[in-house]
């Protein structure tokens, strides 16, 4: 439609313009997202951080096509985005694996639905299974794997569909702390190797600071952009360096203050 829309940044891959979302609930309407404007740059690791639970996930669902928009527009590469765009992949909060498919079956699901040949897609799936460190588990069913392993499969499944943008919706929220650290390192390594745009939603400050190129802080319901931080610490990052701790303090204070105002 509006394909001649000029890009502000030459490396902008997704542009959100005045995004709003309202749900109709039993007793009226609930505004979840209020006028968000956002540009996501190619190959960046963008973390969306916020304490509440409504806005962030809904934003990702809008990007993935799982939710419709109330107002606003989403552009990918300067063109209006269609509902389910193959260039967008998603990793979910809960494992959301297909329980009746093996690890291999889950990872190759995307290419298979697009009609890729068996040998080609299995080779590809194998590559990503190896990448997330699940070599040898191809024939296992999700019910036989631990929570961390299931999330690895989820990540491999998202990458295997060749998206340009990967959305991750609090993927490690249900994992124990130890596994969580491991998975964060793993995700950083994969991102470093594969270089895709990642939009990562979390409510954990450390996780945000450890992973992000840029952090967008959202307010509570209805969500809107509160503040934006560019994080330029060298990778891999230390969780205890003074700059890291200082920024962590600053963001916690900001969010707490904000919440105090809301309550």
């Amino acid at each position: 439609m509006d394909s001649t829309k000029p890009l502000e940044h030459d490396d902008t891959i997704i542009k959100l313009e005045h995004i709003s979302k309202t749900f109709i609930v039993e007793d009226g309407e609930a505004r979840v997202i209020e006028q968000i404007d956002l540009e996501i740059r190619e190959n960046e690791f963008l973390v969306i951080f916020g304490a509440g639970q409504c806005g962030k996930t809904t934003l990702l669902k809008i990007l993935s096509g799982l939710e419709s928009l109330t107002e606003g527009k989403v552009y990918i590469d300067g063109k209006a985005k269609s509902r389910f765009d193959p260039r967008v992949g998603m990793v979910y909060q809960t494992t959301a694996l297909f329980p009746w498919l093996t690890v291999m079956g889950n990872v190759e699901f995307g290419p298979k639905t697009r009609g890729m040949g068996k040998r080609e897609r299995q080779k590809k799936a194998q590559y990503y299974i190896d990448l997330v460190g699940l070599t040898g588990y191809e024939r296992h069913f999700p019910s036989m794997l631990s929570g961390g392993m299931c999330q690895r499969v989820g990540i491999a499944r998202a990458y295997c569909n060749d998206p340009e943008i990967i959305l991750m919706d609090e993927p490690f929220g249900h994992l124990d702390a130890q596994t969580r650290y491991m998975m964060e390192e793993e995700v950083e390594k994969i991102w470093d190797r594969e270089k895709r745009t990642v939009v990562f939603v979390t409510n954990n400050i450390e996780e945000a600071l450890y992973l992000a190129d840029r952090i967008i802080i959202l307010t509570e319901c209805p969500s809107t952009v509160l503040k934006e931080y560019q994080i330029d610490f060298p990778r891999p990052r230390s969780l205890v360096s003074p700059e890291f701790l200082a920024l962590r303090e600053e963001i916690s204070a900001l969010v707490e203050l904000r919440e105090g105002v809301v309550v």
């Binding site: 749900f23 109709i24 609930v25 039993e26 609930a30 979840v32 409504c54 809904t58 669902k61 799982l66 939710e67 419709s68």
Partner: peptide, 12 residues
């Protein structure tokens, strides 16, 4: 159409 695993039912 719209509600997928959402806690907030839409389009009621």
């Amino acid at each position: 159409d719209s509600v997928i695993g959402s806690r907030l039912p839409s389009s009621q």
